[in-house]
Design a protein around this nucleic acid. Structure first.
Ligand code: MN
Ligand code: MN
Ligand code: MN
Ligand code: MN
Lengths: 217, 217
DNA sequence: CTATAAAGTTAGATTAGTCTAACAAATTTT
DNA sequence: AAAATTTGTTAGACTAATCTAACTTTATAG
């Protein structure tokens, strides 16, 4: 399995999480390649039994493909955790580096990271780390946008951890584990006013609140 | 620059250290590829101005090529040091892992390792780490085999750090920094008897003694 | 100084991953 | 239902890295 195919498989896996059916054009967009490229790639992924594909039909990951993808994601997330915990990188820096490291073939390296980290369950963005069999145990959190006024919650994960969001949260001093209380909800734009370890109350847009996954506390 | 070309360049660099002239067949042997493969590769390395090459003539690294190679070796050795110091890998394990990691393109990662390690000058086998400009400052040590009886020395580096040698040294409890005194030299097979932090004296073959680079202490 | 052997080259093929251009099928809009 | 748009396919080309087979040049050994 090549570096390239691993990235396709991961992309398909992530698309699979959000939609049931995966179109070639979506995959092409995500991978930033032309349609003929994606077309020939899915044929070759099919030959390895990682996807099911028929002309003009949407793409589907096989169980085998899902597992393969999960194992790459395991490497990715373990790496992110290691970069954050052991090397002092910020949560907004780790993804880019892990994107390369995830393709290393030497298992020893990832096993040692796992051990040093004490077998972590989640990455620095709160996403679950698949186990060595490729099984993912994901907790079901609720978007902050759906919490009622007066309730106290803890930030546990993010829907999409784009660098921009992470830098925004840094500026607001919001991190995983931050506990906050909903002070007020503005019906007009659905923005919310929250209070946490800062002196002043902070306003969060609906857009942001939708991306923050929380649990009650 | 691809992963593959980086490995060729490194191989040429290492051959260059030992011999003046580098033949394609040697390079082919080192890289475990056929002669036509090595032939077409050197042509392509030449186009990038990393080597000088003319039909039927031995290969030569350009200054540019030497620098490129040194920067890859910098990544390799920094990685080895990090694996040993921060992740608890043995000196016999690090090379194989570093062989993969050295190709990562993300400079941030290597810079952070360098910083965390306190800008080390040598790798876990005592080989010098080239600086960010690709300049190598190599100390000139002496093989243990050339030291006279009665002299006290410190092991500082190895001529060739094969896994087999490293495991042998582990068994003998010899590491970088080990200080030893030559007790006796056997003229017949040039083996030497040494004493160090062990209760008993230890016999080292000429073969081994040639590979251990020492300085007086 | 010829005859082998070793080293190096060329030609041609293969696989992986990519592209553009041209066309076809499916979907959406009018 | 026809037209327009989007989506997907095919054909053909390119680069990188590799191989085998056949040949040539250079080196070595009688
Ligand atoms: Mn990530
Ligand atoms: Mn990747
Ligand atoms: Mn090494
Ligand atoms: Mn390598």
């Amino acid at each position: 399995m090549t570096h390239t195919k691993e990235n396709y498989l991961k992309a398909i896996y992530h698309l699979d999480q959000n939609q049931e059916k995966i179109s070639l054009s979506e995959l092409g967009k995500k991978m930033e390649v032309s349609m003929p490229t994606v077309n020939s790639m899915v044929k070759s992924l099919q030959e390895k039994d990682w996807v099911i594909y028929q002309k003009y039909q949407p793409l589907q990951l096989t169980t085998k493909g899902k597992q393969k993808a999960a194992l790459i994601i395991r490497k990715h997330r373990l790496t992110e955790m290691f970069l954050a915990q052991y090397m002092g990188f910020g949560w907004e820096e780790v993804h880019e580096i892990a994107e390369e490291i995830e393709h290393l073939q030497v298992d020893k390296f990832f096993d040692r990271m796992d051990e040093l980290l004490g077998y972590p369950a989640v990455d620095p963005h709160g996403s679950p780390i698949p186990d060595k069999e490729g099984v993912v145990v994901a907790k079901s959190y609720v978007p902050l946008s759906e919490i009622e006024v007066g309730v106290q919650v803890r930030i546990c994960s993010l829907v999409k951890s784009s660098k921009e969001l992470l830098l925004y949260l840094n500026r607001k001093e919001i991190a995983l584990g931050t506990e906050l209380k909903i002070e007020k909800k503005e019906p007009f734009d659905k923005s919310i006013l929250v209070r946490y370890q800062r002196p002043d109350k902070v306003m969060l847009s609906h857009e942001v609140a939708q991306l923050l996954l929380v649990e009650l506390c």
